[in-house]
Amino acid sequence: MRKPDKHTIACILFAAGAAAVGLMTDDAYYLQVLIFIGINTLLALSLNLLMGYAGQISLGHAAFYGIGAYTTAVLSATYGFSPWLALPAAIVMAMAVAYIVGRPTLRLTGYYLGMGTLGFGMIVSIVFREWHSVTGGASGFVGIPPLEIAGFAFDTDRSYYFLVWAVVLFFFLLSRRIIDSRVGRALRAIHDGEHAASAMGIDTARMKLHIFILSATMASLAGFLYAHQVYFISPETFGFMASIKIVTMVVIGGMASIWGSLFGATLLTILPEWLHAFADYEMMVYGLILMLVMIFLPQGLTRGIIDLYESSRKKHDQ
């Protein structure tokens, strides 16, 4: 038996902490905020795998989030399928769309994926808004059923909290495994130097496509969880601003950092709750935060705070 590594221990502590918070929090509002933090963490983590590790930017990630949400909404509410049948459909849908968008753009080096996904995100958001007969149009889609397993319904905030955070934990473990493997090394190599990576025998187009598909799948799963939590979805949740918000979570939390995704998602979920009075200026506040982080803590807040702490401790020791 190998000694459990640092990340496994961190995950166990994190699971215990999340469980304790879930059991001790009675307030429905707080539980809901915590659920949204979980869903946003999954989104941020999905983009961080792509952007932070492989160095490929997606400016349309909210579209995959929306594809997950609308696929399950239409299948489970309109057609009455079980959400557990809608889930694989939502995942396959996201994978297929990611393949179609990623295949041509990821063969090229540079920011083609960024441009491709930007356009793609806008198209998807227009489809959600204009395809009234299926999506309910701009007024939104109502009547999404709660999730149920063998007679147990995830219809309370507490049960849903545990479901969402179990999924998040699962992907924390999965992401770490991928990052520490041959695949993860290839992705980081592409980030550090695509030219050198292919000279090491890495099929860079293929690797980038694989991680993009995984990333889209995770975002779609987040959309699935979102839809069955709020029972009502509307197009603006999945628009361009939402995509930028996911990018902001990754940059603030820290690129190439699993725990940074948690941190970035937490901050950007709580901030709008605090800044209700400034709702009109929300995007400006994000823009400002993004600029400040890029200038002063380019590695993200998580890394930046750790560095500050370490350098102050060193000074203290001297």
């Binding site: 495994r177 695949v183 694989h210 995984l214």
Partner: peptide
């Protein structure tokens, strides 16, 4: 080596 994305997971 041959480990792919599923293998690593």
């Amino acid at each position: 080596t041959s480990c792919g994305i599923f293998g690593s997971a």
